[in-house]
Design a protein around this nucleic acid. Structure first.
Lengths: 198, 198
DNA sequence: CCATCTGGAGAACGCTCGTTCTCCCTTGCT
DNA sequence: AGCAAGGGAGAACGAGCGTTCTCCAGATGG
């Protein structure tokens, strides 16, 4: 049990937290169940995270890193800059179809704890801002007007929340088509056009 | 007192539920606090609603009626059929700016209880479906293709969730502009055009 | 080989919750 | 006037929460 194991214990704790909190909501999962799933003792859990709120925040932070990493990796497979924007919605569609998908973890946790825990609310705002910034770089790389970022972000958020409520992957396809239309309309204005298309 | 008071008591209970549940989340508000705010005794509360879950469902049902009523009233002030779609986002913007706005009650409660209470999850799905159906009638009245409903719905949902997280009214304006673009693009196709515009 | 310490298992604590029960006062009927 | 009925106030109850404490097995250093 060298200090190296402390990192492994942290991972186990966060694995259990992610599995249980995402599936059933934070307040439905007690520390006892977390102890059982992680295999860690309550004492160890509390020396890693001094309170449940911090464990929730750490779970959200690690999930944020992984979520944006998976998205970026999937989108980066698309060489054409302007095609990377629809690729965002392709990835959303794959995500919505995964077994156990229950909507956006940050939207859900904001509904649950946003009014109660400022620490959690801040994690949610940070995650959404990072996602929006990422979309913004895609828009810039495609030489499209920056005003496109907002609408694309709203389409993605709407798709996440709707897929979470209805359990369908269809919102991703609808959002992708709408995004294509908006991109085409923005490209049609003389505002910021890349090299001529045809 | 007389049976008439039973309806008044119900209203008081739902008023208190709406005020407290929306502002702070359902699980943060106990029945004791509800008793204090409503002025009703615990006994009366429990004979009106046999369990907290039913009170939550009733609160959501009454709010659904009022919310859609306010939206429809605001939109109906717009005589031009095609202008009624942006009017939806005008109303969202007004709503987002109201004091005490904390996002969409149904999205929030879905994050909080959607995984736990099937009764609540069903209320959320019914509300969102009713909103989508309403948008669909606006699209039909404007002689626009039915495929426009999905994207408009996603823009509205994205605006609600983003306004709830960031506390800004800006998402409504972004969504309205995007909606205008989508409406224009749909009208440009020969699919279903009303009388020529110019 | 013994003293010391670390961490595991889980009991215990204090609190809050949803729900029910007790007690008392009012009220309306005969 | 007297009496059943019902509602108000709030205590009580059992369960579950987050957090802490107790106790003990086993490793470690001299």
């Amino acid at each position: 049990m060298s200090p190296m194991d402390s990192a492994a214990a942290r991972d186990r704790a966060l694995d259990a937290a992610e599995e249980l909190y995402y599936a059933r909501g934070v307040s439905c999962v007690g520390m006892d169940e977390l102890r059982g799933t992680s295999g860690l003792s309550l004492k160890r859990l509390y020396q890693l995270f001094p309170a449940k709120e911090q464990l929730v925040a750490a779970y959200l932070a690690r999930r944020d890193e992984r979520w944006r990493g998976r998205l970026a990796a999937r989108v980066a497979r698309q060489p054409e800059a302007r095609e990377r924007i629809p690729a965002v919605f392709d990835w959303l569609e794959e995500w919505f179809g995964e077994p156990g998908f229950r909507g956006c973890a940050w939207i859900n946790v904001h509904g649950e704890l946003g009014a109660t825990s400022e620490l959690v609310a801040e994690q949610v705002r940070a995650h959404k801002e990072a996602f929006r910034d990422y979309l913004d770089t895609l828009v810039a790389e495609a030489d499209l007007p920056a005003a496109l970022t907002g609408p694309l972000f709203l389409l993605a958020e709407g798709a996440m929340v709707t897929a979470g409520i209805t359990g369908s992957t269809r919102p991703a396809a609808e959002a992708r088509e709408a995004a294509r239309t908006l991109v085409a309309a923005a490209g049609r204005d003389g505002l910021s056009r890349p090299a001529p298309t045809a």
